[in-house]
Design a protein around this nucleic acid. Structure first.
Lengths: 151, 151
DNA sequence: GCAGAATTGTTAGCATAGCTAACTAAATTG
DNA sequence: CAATTTAGTTAGCTATGCTAACAATTCTGC
C-alpha cells in the first residue's frame, strides 16, 4: 500500500481542512443571502454586475460568462434581465458578433448599495474580532485566494 | 464627526476584509459546484441530505427548513425530490402533523460519495500549499467559524 | 367535549438560474 | 467566394427560491 497520493488525501489533514472550509463557505453565504434579497436583484445578476462595475470596464458576453463560470446561454439570460432592469447597456464593437456590456449609472449605484448591504453584516461580524485576529483573517483570505487559484 | 462605528466600517479594514471574504466564498463554491453536478443530485437536495446524514438523525420538515435557511414550501419540494430519488424516507411521528425525515442507506451512500468528490478537489488545491501554510489555513478556519457565529 | 385558534405541511403559481441542443449572424480561412 | 469557426440567442428542461392559499392535525378555552 504505497498509494500515498489518494490515500493520504481522503482522511488526511488536507481533506479535513477542505471539508471544514467547504462547510464554512456554505454557511457564510447562506447567511449573507438574506441581505442579498433586499436589493431586488437576483444573486447571479448582482454577481455579473459586479464584474462590470468593479472588474474594470466593459466586457463581452463570453468574457462575462467565463468570469462567472457559467455557460453563454445562462449569461445571455442574466444580461437580458440586467438590461431589462436598466442596469446594463449593450453596445457595439468592431467585431459585429461581439457585444460590449457596460454598467449604467443606475447599475453602478445599485451594485454599490447592494454590495455595501451584503458586506455590512459580514463586516460587523468581522469587527467583533480583535485587531490582531482581523489581521490574521486577512492573511487567511490571501491563502484562500491561493487555494481558489489552484482549484 | 465622531461617528466612528459606522464610518469606520464602510471603508475600513473590516469592510475590506469582509468584501474579500465574501468574494472568495462565492468563487470557492462556484468552482466546487462543478463536482456537485456529478452526483446527479441538486445542491439544495445534497445540502438537505447532509443535515439528515451528518446532522445526527431524523428531523421534521420544519426543522430541516430552518437548518437550511429556507421556507417550508421550498423544503417541501426539496424533500419530495429526495424521496422520489429514494434517498430519504418519510415516517410518522406521535404528532400527526409532523413528518419524520430520515436518510435511506442509498441516501447516506450517495451523500458520502458526493461529499468526498466535492471536498477532494478542494483538498488537492489545499495540498499544494506547504505544510506550514496548511497548518495556518486550518487555524484560520477556526477564525472563520467564529465570524460565522457572529453573523 | 367541542368550536375556534394555532401549527405543520402541501399545492399552485411566479421568478431566477443552471444546463444542452439547435439556431442565426458575423468573421475568418482556404 | 464557399466552408468553417466564433459569438450570442432562443427553446425547453430541471432545480430552487418566494408568497398565498389550502388541508390536516393538535391545542385551547369554555
Amino acid at each position: 500500500m504505497t498509494d500515498v497520493k489518494s490515500k493520504r488525501l481522503l482522511g488526511g489533514p488536507a481533506f479535513l481542512t477542505a471539508d471544514r472550509l467547504h462547510s464554512a463557505a456554505i454557511h457564510l453565504l447562506r447567511r449573507l443571502r438574506v441581505r442579498d434579497r433586499e436589493s431586488g436583484v437576483g444573486p447571479a445578476q448582482l454577481s455579473a454586475l459586479s464584474v462590470l462595475v468593479l472588474g474594470g470596464g466593459p466586457r463581452s458576453l463570453g468574457e462575462l460568462a467565463e468570469a462567472e463560470q457559467v455557460r453563454p446561454p445562462t449569461m445571455s439570460r442574466i444580461v437580458a434581465g440586467l438590461v431589462r432592469a436598466g442596469l446594463v447597456r449593450r453596445g457595439k464593437t468592431e467585431d459585429g458578433r461581439r457585444v460590449r456590456l457596460e454598467a449604467t449609472a443606475k447599475g453602478t449605484k445599485i451594485l454599490q448599495e447592494g454590495r455595501r448591504r451584503r458586506v455590512e453584516s459580514l463586516a460587523r461580524a468581522v469587527s467583533v474580532l480583535s485587531d490582531k485576529e482581523q489581521q490574521r483573517l486577512g492573511e487567511l483570505i490571501d491563502l484562500l485566494q491561493q487555494v481558489i487559484r489552484n482549484l
